[in-house]
Each structure stands twice: as C-alpha cells, then as structure tokens.
Amino acid sequence: MSASFSREVVLDRIRRATPGAAASGAALAEAYGAQPQNYIRCGAMSAGERVELMMQRLREYDAEVVECAAEELARTIATQLAASGRWRFVAPPGLPSEWLAAGFDWRIDEGLTAAEIEGAEGVVTAAFCGVADSGTIVLHHSASEGRRVLTLLPDWHLCILRASQVVETLPEYFSRCAAREQGSGVRDQESGNEGTREQGNEKMGTEGRWTREERTKRLPSLVTWISGPSATADIEMTRIKGVHGPRFLHVILVKD
C-alpha cells in the first residue's frame, strides 16, 4: 500500500462513518458556538488570594517558594543561588543581566550542547504564566524562558514568576494565550510583535473571538506545563521526587 493510498482509505472510511459531518471548515466554527462552557472560566479571588493559593499549591508539590518585592529581585536571586550550595548555572539568552548574580559560574545558552547543560548544577528562567488552582507554571520557551532542554537536564530549577502573571484558573491561562496581552516574564521577541497584534484586532469576530486563521498564528507552538518537580508513583504508589526532570523546583514570586 502506498502512503497516499492509505490516507485516502482512512479518510474515506471516516467520511462514510460520519454522514452528519460538516461540509467545510467554515461550518465547524458554527458548531463551536454550541459548546457548553458552564464550567468555571474566571476565578473570583483577589490578586492577593491568588498569589497565596499559588504559593500554597507549589509548596504542596514540595517546591520551595519565596516572595519578594520587584526591587529586591536581584538580591533574592543571589540569596537563593547561594543557599543552593551550587555554583555552575545555565541561563537562557534573554534573561536580564541583573539576574545573573555575581560569584557564580554562568553559561548562557547560545547553543550549548546537551552535555554542557547536563554539566550545570542549576538553571534560572522566567515563565509565561502561573495557574494558582493547580500550582502550575507555564513556559512558552521564549528567550527568557529558555529552550525546553534547558529546564530539563539541570537538577535544580529556579523560576521567576511575577504576581501579575498568576491567574486563578486554567481557562484564564488559555484566554491569556489567545489575547497575548501579557508578555513573557521579561520583554523579548515573543511580546514585541505589534504588527501582528493590530492585524489580529481587525480580524476579531463579532463575539470578540479570534477567527480560526488568526488564532492559529497567535497560539504558542511550544508549551510546557510544570506542576512541581519530576515525580513518579509507579512503585507501590509511593510518590518519589525526581526521576528524570529537575528534582528541585524553586520559585520566586515577585510582587509587581
């Protein structure tokens, strides 16, 4: 069987099995108007409660969390790094230089090999969003959040999350994704594309939704949702921290 032959075979079977299918892509958008969305989309917490819940959830995952004011951030990072007892760190290229505390061995990821990243004792990154309800940190892997491998191989991950990036529910994160009002932890190429945003506004549908074409372009192409350090419960359901991903997750929550 040739490859394109099987494609036609499978699609033909599907068409015969779904006689009620929409005739075109345009009709699909219609269908979505009927989706029941009476689950909780927006939370009801105050900003303070939201951050409190985020920290509580992170701690339940055995993550270390500290809070600090914006102007104390660089000092807090330095304290955290020192307390870790480690000194060889990697950082994504978009990380603000004032975050790179003096007195440590920094390697900036401008094409580091996996072995070089593996050799680091820790990594410091920004994040795209925090979801308080499940204590989830979301990375879109922009220049300040780093390539995927950067937050994977080192055993210790320090993540900087601003209070304004914390949402209460998972649906709120998805709304932020589509709207892209919120940039990444730090300004970088991800949030800078004004042209696209204005075009997007023009194309917004009457219900305030993006057209399908436009949404597709704006949605992230790489996402990692992190909820606590790597873990397994495969042996007798006993939760063990740190199988392959970082064993230690530290979070600094910046009040902004």
């Binding site: 959830r57 995952y61 094409g111 979801v131 309800d133 499940s134 204590g135 989830t136 892997h141 390539r147 995927r148 491998v149 992230p220 192409s221 790489l222 996402v223 990692t224 949702w225 992190i226 909820s227 606590g228 350090p229 790597s230 873990a231 991903g245």
Partner: peptide, 19 residues
C-alpha cells in the same frame, strides 16, 4: 488523583534550535 500532572508538553512540528 493530582490537580495537574508534573509535566505536560506541547509542540508543533519542528522548532529550529529547540528539540
């Protein structure tokens, strides 16, 4: 029985320099 599993990954095709 977790609020969220530790890691969820999403990717689209190939990304230059990442993966």
């Amino acid at each position: 029985g977790e609020r969220m599993n530790p890691y969820t990954s999403l990717w689209s095709g190939v990304t230059a320099g990442d993966g």
